[in-house]
Computed example of a mutant assay.
Amino acid sequence: MSITTKSLTLHLGLIALLFALGFILPAYHHGNLARVMVLAVYAVGYNVLFGYTGLLSLGHAMFFAAGMYGMGLSIKFLGLTPAPALAMGVLAGVALAVVVGLLALRTIGVAFMIVTLMFSQAVYLTILLFGEYTRGDEGFVIQQAQRVIWGVDLSTDQARYMAALAMFSVAMLSVLWLMRRPAGKVLIAIRENEERAQLLGYNVFAHKLGAVVLSGALSALAGAGYGLLFGYVGASFAHVQYSIFPLLWVLLGGAGTVIGPFIGTLFMFYLIDLSSGLTNAYMLVAGVALVLLTLFARAGLVGELRKRVWGWLP
């Protein structure tokens, strides 16, 4: 069996497994897994920039929030239906990513991290400033009647789960396809040695900008989808912690792996969920687990599997 066939079988198998779980999981885990899949789209987007291109952003919450507010405000004030509102959310994220990319990519290293953090804080403060429309930290609810797409009520458990699965499948398979194309190989080359990639004649700035835009688009899709599927839009999703979360998910699952962001998101979500049921100091439990993983699985859960067992994992 070729590497391409193995890879495709693995990722399609994961989608099939998630589809089957949608019919057998109890209600609590059914809802949790739907939430995990949407957040995993966010992690997949972050992984394009950090895991494959080697650009560490500390401000990705601005793209998540841009998608969420682009979708939510379109429904609230423009009266759009969910499908075009979702598209508006993604377009808002893409527009913001183009602007941020053109400016932030003039810097490198730590400066890039700081600039993205500054942009993200500016977006967060802008949301608070226009609280008359955004409702600030309080946020606003998207009514059930406004969450019906093509006759399907996305507020129901099964429809929400399948919509989350569809979003995650598109995001994961798109990145899998990209990483097998020449453009994806160039991103990896930039991550490994940017100067050498430039000497080989590649337009490094254009490829990095493309990575920022794609990452922003996927993150905005996650934000718009989250707001639409769970019926809430709020400024808390633009806060700095939502820029740190995807970094942790990607590091835990395995940076530069296609399936890693989902595994990392799933692991972190249930680690906090289970530990919070045992103690109020659940973040201490999560912190200890993160430290142990950092010490003994430095490449992440999927990254370690690639290093030790399945070297063909993309």
Results as ranks from 00 to 15, higher is better:
Met1Ala: 10
Thr4Met: 02
Ser7Leu: 03
Leu10Arg: 04
Leu14Tyr: 09
Leu18His: 09
Leu18Tyr: 14
Leu21Ser: 04
Leu21Cys: 10
Phe23Ala: 11
Ile24Val: 15
Ala27Asp: 14
His29Val: 09
Gly31Cys: 02
Asn32Met: 13
Leu33Lys: 08
Arg35Cys: 07
Met37Ser: 04
Leu39Tyr: 12
Val41His: 01
Tyr42Phe: 15
Ala43Val: 01
Ala43Tyr: 03
Val44Thr: 15
Gly45Lys: 08
Tyr46Asn: 14
Asn47Pro: 12
Leu49Asn: 07
Phe50Asp: 08
Gly51Glu: 07
Ser57Tyr: 06
Ser57Pro: 09
Leu58Asp: 07
Gly59Cys: 12
Gly59Val: 12
His60Cys: 06
Ala61Leu: 07
Met62Val: 11
Phe64Leu: 05
Ala66Glu: 02
Gly67Thr: 06
Gly72Thr: 03
Leu73Asn: 02
Ile75Arg: 01
Lys76His: 12
Leu80Ser: 00
Thr81Ile: 04
Pro84Gly: 04
Ala95Cys: 13
Leu96Tyr: 05
Val98Ser: 11
Val99Cys: 06
Val100Gly: 05
Leu102Glu: 10
Leu102Pro: 03
Leu103Phe: 14
Leu103Pro: 03
Leu105Ala: 08
Arg106Ser: 09
Ile108Met: 12
Val110Lys: 02
Phe112Lys: 04
Phe112Val: 09
Gln121Gly: 13
Gln121Ser: 12
Val123Trp: 02
Val123Gly: 01
Tyr124Gly: 06
Glu138Thr: 14
Gln143Arg: 08
Gln146Ile: 00
Gln146Arg: 06
Arg147Ala: 05
Gly151Ile: 00
Gly151Tyr: 00
Leu154Phe: 01
Ser155Phe: 10
Ala159Ser: 13
Tyr161Ser: 02
Met162His: 13
Ala164Lys: 04
Phe168Thr: 04
Ala171Phe: 04
Met172Tyr: 02
Leu176Pro: 00
Met179Ala: 05
Ala183Met: 13
Lys185Tyr: 04
Leu187Thr: 09
Ala189Trp: 10
Arg191Ala: 09
Glu194Pro: 02
Leu199Ser: 11
Leu199Arg: 11
Asn203Phe: 04
Asn203Glu: 11
Asn203Ala: 09
Val204His: 03
Lys208Thr: 10
Gly210Asn: 11
Ala211Lys: 07
Ala211Ile: 12
Val212Trp: 02
Val212Glu: 03
Ser215Val: 12
Gly216Asn: 12
Ala217Gly: 04
Ala220Ser: 15
Leu221Arg: 05
Leu221Thr: 11
Leu228Thr: 09
Leu228Phe: 10
Leu228Arg: 10
Leu229Lys: 05
Gly231Phe: 11
Val233Gln: 01
Gly234Ile: 12
Ala235Val: 07
Gln241Met: 15
Ser243Ala: 14
Ser243Leu: 09
Phe245His: 11
Pro246Phe: 08
Leu247Tyr: 10
Trp249Met: 15
Val250Gln: 13
Val250Trp: 12
Leu251Phe: 15
Leu252Cys: 10
Leu252Arg: 03
Gly256Leu: 00
Phe262Arg: 07
Leu271His: 03
Ile272Tyr: 14
Leu278Gln: 10
Thr279Arg: 00
Asn280Gly: 11
Ala281Pro: 00
Ala281Cys: 01
Ala281Gly: 03
Tyr282Cys: 01
Leu284Cys: 00
Leu290His: 03
Thr294Ala: 14
Leu295Met: 07
Lys307Thr: 15
Trp312His: 04
